[in-house]
């Protein structure tokens, strides 16, 4: 039953930051370096992920929580194969698709061309693109803006279109990095449903979000990271989320004692179905 799709084995990711001292560009320092025959000065290493191990199975929707800089996005990029491990390895059966807020496509081009290009780049045929085009545009809800260059889109519209493009293909492994944060309430419900579908289509989904409620609703499993390491990890999403909230000094969430769902305060009512 449990078939591993992603295996993270003692993963270490190290960023090399050049010119950490901030004086990299001045002519004097460059000259001194050349005379001194020194290698590039001021390289600082940032150890972003330190020895992570876990197995993600088919059908898992894994939420990753943790403070800013705890290595969540780095982990996703390593799973997508965009960062080489310093040590350890990430194993996947197919190429994972990363969907992040910064994943702008080509700003100069219209939304329409971006849809076509994005789909072709994901390896679809022209016929498949044609077949899916209306669905993608409809799902993104950008409407008439589809004819305009993407640089004219609002942040929310852009991320909606990007999500729609990436979600049009059933990825075995889908990595979502805060991509839904900018969407409005209606879009969140839609994208939540789409993630459910993708998960049901027997893939694995990773979701990084600071909106903890989103993780409670979407994920069946959660990883809490701190300083590049796993603090806790497991299928009891709500308990871990509550622990995390407590550890970061937040207000405890009011929950229904039976269903353990959040008891909505009046300001949040609009978000529901």
């Amino acid at each position: 039953m449990a078939e591993p799709l992603v295996i993270v084995d003692d993963l270490h990711i190290v960023y090399k930051v050049y010119g950490a001292g901030g004086d990299r560009g001045t002519a004097a320092t460059v000259l001194l370096r050349m005379i001194g025959r020194k290698t590039r000065g001021n390289i600082r290493e940032v150890h972003a992920v330190r020895g992570l191990s876990f197995v993600a199975n088919r059908g898992d929707a894994i939420g990753i929580i943790g403070r800013n800089g705890s290595g969540k996005s780095t982990l996703l990029r390593a799973i997508a194969g965009l960062l080489p491990p310093e040590k350890g390895n990430v194993y996947t059966n197919s190429q994972a698709s990363l969907l992040g807020v910064n994943a702008a496509l080509l700003d100069e081009l219209t939304g329409e061309r971006n849809v076509v290009l994005g789909c072709l780049a994901m390896g679809m045929s022209r016929a498949e693109v044609k077949a899916k085009y209306q669905d993608i545009v409809g799902f993104s809800g950008v409407g008439d803006f589809i004819d305009l260059p993407m640089k004219t889109y609002s942040a929310g519209m852009g991320s909606r279109l990007r999500f729609a493009i990436a979600a049009s293909k059933t990825h075995e492994v889908l990595l979502i990095d805060e991509a839904l944060a900018t969407g409005d309430a209606e879009f969140r419900v839609k994208s939540h449903n789409r993630i459910e579908e993708l998960r049901a289509a027997a893939g694995a989904v990773f979701l990084v979000a600071h909106e903890l409620e989103e993780i409670e609703l979407t994920c069946n499993r959660v990883i809490w990271m701190e300083r590049g390491k796993i603090v806790t990890e497991g299928y009891d999403v709500i308990t871990i989320v509550d622990q995390y909230i407590e550890a970061s000094g937040g207000e405890p969430v009011l929950r229904d004692p039976v269903t353990r769902r959040r008891i909505k305060t009046s300001s949040m009512e609009t978000a529901g179905a």
Binding site: L5, A78, G81, V90, Y91, Q95
Partner: peptide
């Protein structure tokens, strides 16, 4: 485990 399921390094 990865080898058994035919998983390959992502990078």
């Amino acid at each position: 485990l990865a080898a058994r399921y035919g998983l390959r390094p992502s990078a």
